[in-house]
Write a protein that binds this DNA or RNA. Structure first.
Lengths: 194, 194
DNA sequence: TTGTAGTTTAACAAAAATGTTAAACATAAT
DNA sequence: ATTATGTTTAACATTTTTGTTAAACTACAA
């Protein structure tokens, strides 16, 4: 049987990803996505059967991609300090590309009463232990390791979620904002690690 | 003419506020809100004419309330350090009550191409100058004052936006999470101010 | 060339959400 | 008690979004 693969299925997924996670239209319709992809809306149903299935697949793929990237950092046999450095680079680059991904996850969370996957729970649990160890060695300020993690992710994620507001607030364009975000990588490290 | 005022109009607004900003159902329908308020959906149209007008009013009232609270902090004739302290208290208490308010603003921003009100722009401009001054006095670490502001608001807002994920991630209940958030007030001050 | 199977489209159907109307209801003033 | 007026409700209409179907289209192979 001829597998023709016109790339349409992937195009729809990529477009949905862009609309949700980059553009931030959290309640885009199938028509919105089809228009943005330049295809007939019916193709969404042809390839994915329903809107919900498309959304589910897009979210799952994004989660997997992120998970893979973080895993490579967390499992690396390197010093904690170096790990934090790499984590900031990896996460910030992702957050620059997909600033609204976490927001999408939160809203999806509320609709479907999802739970955090064990994979993530375990990864975080191990990292919390490393944080605690680093604190006991006096290398970072002592506090609840969960607060440390929240600080780190807050500093990385929030300025990107609020990009549109900040650009308007500070009267700056995309290029300048991107520069600010790149500068943040070092700045966050300095704030966290001292 | 008899102004009867059964409180229904306010009830609908308060309920919408709760659903959007506290519960975080960013795309709740008029039916959702009517159900939560325990009133007939038609009353939404009776009091507000349209769904959009209700949403607009709710957002505007929330903005005004926040603006008022922040203004009282920013315009106070007190030392910068004290100002930061108060800002954290005021903002965190609001964020605990309405964790999704900022997220709602962001998504509304994208739909309507709004702009940050001049009132807010001016307030921030003045505060940025104060931050710069404090840095020049060597009282806080030197950096782009905008980064300082982003740090501050990130640390306050993000953990509340991601409440549902964090509760699942750390296996904790509302009470424990609230405690973490209360502890953050001092912790954020210590991180920012040194 | 013709048949096959995947792909695309338009027309239609169904469901969900919003908006309108008229009548029922309730309360305060006359 | 009656009237007037604001409030609430149910039934209906409209719009928006989603899902289905059958036919048209296209590339490839026999």
């Amino acid at each position: 049987m001829a597998q023709r693969d016109t790339g349409t299925e992937q195009l729809i997924k990529d477009t949905a990803k862009r609309i949700f996670f980059s553009v931030g239209k959290l309640h885009a319709t199938t028509q919105d996505i089809a228009d943005a992809a330049g295809v007939n809306r019916t193709l969404v149903n042809y390839y994915f059967r329903s809107r919900d299935i498309l959304f589910e697949q897009v979210a799952e793929e994004a989660r997997a991609e992120m998970s893979e990237q973080l895993e490579s950092v967390f499992s690396a046999k390197i010093e904690f300090k170096e790990k934090v450095q790499r984590l900031i680079t990896v996460f910030m680059d992702q957050a620059i590309k997909f600033p609204y991904r976490e927001m999408y996850v939160v809203t999806a969370f509320k609709r479907t009463d999802k739970t955090v996957p064990d994979e993530k729970k375990n990864r975080i649990k191990k990292f919390l232990a490393e944080i605690k160890e680093e604190m006991e060695l006096g290398r970072i300020k002592k506090m609840d390791p969960r607060q440390f993690l929240m600080n780190l992710f807050s500093l990385m994620a929030y300025p990107l979620i609020t990009t549109c507001i900040n650009k308007s607030l500070y009267n700056i364009n995309d290029k300048e904002y991107l520069k600010l975000m790149q500068e943040r990588k070092q700045l966050i490290f300095d704030m966290i690690y001292q």
